[in-house]
Amino acid sequence: MLIYNANVVCLNDLIEQGAVYIQNGRVNRILSHQELDSFLLKKPDLYSVNAGGAWLIPGFVDVHVHGGNGYDFMDATEESLLGISKFHAQHGTTSMLATTVTSSKDNIEKVLKSVASFQEEIQPFAQVIGVHLEGPFISPNMPGAQNPNYIVPPNVNWMKEWTEIYPNIVKILTLAPEADHAIEVIEYSLSQGIVIACGHSDGTYEEILRATEAGLTHSVHMYNAMRGFHHREPGVAGNILVNEGLSTEIIADGEHVHPVSIQLLTKLKNKDNLLLITDAMSAAGLGDGTYNLGGLEVVMKDNVARLKEGGNLAGSSLTMIEGFKYMVNTVGLSVSEASKLASYNPAKLLGLEYEVGSIREGYQADLLLLTKDLEIEKVWKRGELIEF
């Protein structure tokens, strides 16, 4: 298949009126407008898609998403996994991590088992490439919308058990690095190839620094559920802002973080260590109403989800395409810059940057065709058009 007459967004280049030739589910050639005619002479019967001057960008990689369209990954069923992956694929996500919430050990194990089984099936929508454990090893001082009844200190025996029974399933572990035994868990999890993330943390600047030295490399939903910046104690937020060894995430929905704070983040992280996520919960895609998150009641009103008790923001109703548009239209990034945050940087975090997350020859053909107004026209995964 050939997609032509597109603004092709590559990692370090924008090819106007370019074309992408796909073969066996991978990008075989990237062509300029000048190269197209001679290429077509060699393949006169090639199936072609005229992009009409639209944007062609890599599929989104969401490393922090809890659910959508009424489904939650904590349901731990094939129906929910299919429902979530279909919903988010409709909004441009082609790869995702099933993200847990702080819950019982038994419930977390059910999620690990369900994802391990799901990976053995044909996945027609977004690819569920593993699990992001958000909790239960978080700070009781910074629960956010996590259920405080299930918060426990970091437990290396649990991590050993989970990685032995479900090898290569856990891709990210979010914990409070200041907690007792956190360094031990960080060092063990790192040895298993797991990305260690700071989140729901009340740690000091120095505590986060020590965790970074032990192997912490990432942080979740910047500014939210973390000790904030103070000029005499920079806290978690201050460490992330200046620490080049830490990447971080942003929920770009206009509710979680002020756009100026996001602009500051893009300047300090130079757009290399910043990831766009949804943190979407089951209410994403649905209307106002009452929902459940980790056993806690959540009220959705005007697309904003908050805990019924206490009023804390509870995940989001965001999709990746809406976050992408917010980064372009409100924060002021270019389409190419926003694409890096939504696709390449998340893939790089997971060590998948040579497979997905950018449009390059030899890479998996996970592609989105966007109108000039950044609305999704088509979604391809491994070169196959996803039918919804």
Rank of each mutant, 00 (worst) to 15 (best):
S261W: 04
G311C: 09
D373C: 00
S261H: 12
Q263N: 07
M300P: 02
K381S: 09
A284V: 07
L370C: 03
K325F: 08
L276D: 12
V379W: 07
E297I: 00
D272R: 03
E297W: 00
T290C: 09
D253L: 05
T371A: 07
D373V: 00
N273R: 15
I262G: 02
Q364D: 05
N270D: 14
E337P: 02
V304P: 03
R382A: 14
E337S: 06
L275V: 03
A342F: 06
S317N: 15
G311W: 08
K372G: 02
V328H: 14
E353N: 12
L296K: 14
G285A: 10
L286A: 01
L374H: 12
K267Y: 13
L374Q: 10
K308G: 01
S336W: 02
L286I: 00
I262R: 01
V379D: 10
Y326L: 03
L368I: 08
S343L: 11
V328T: 08
N273C: 01
L341A: 11
L370K: 04
A283G: 13
I321R: 03
L307R: 05
G289V: 09
G351M: 02
Y363W: 13
L307H: 10
L369R: 11
E353S: 15
L341H: 08
K381I: 15
L313C: 00
L274W: 00
M281A: 07
R306F: 06
N303S: 14
V260K: 13
A280C: 15
I277T: 02
S261Q: 12
S247V: 07
E353L: 05
L318R: 05
Y354I: 02
S343V: 06
N292S: 14
Y354W: 09
L333V: 04
K325C: 13
Y291M: 07
A314R: 09
N312I: 03
L370Y: 03
A280T: 07
P259E: 04
T278L: 12
K301S: 14
R306D: 01
S316M: 08
T248P: 10
N345W: 07
G357S: 09
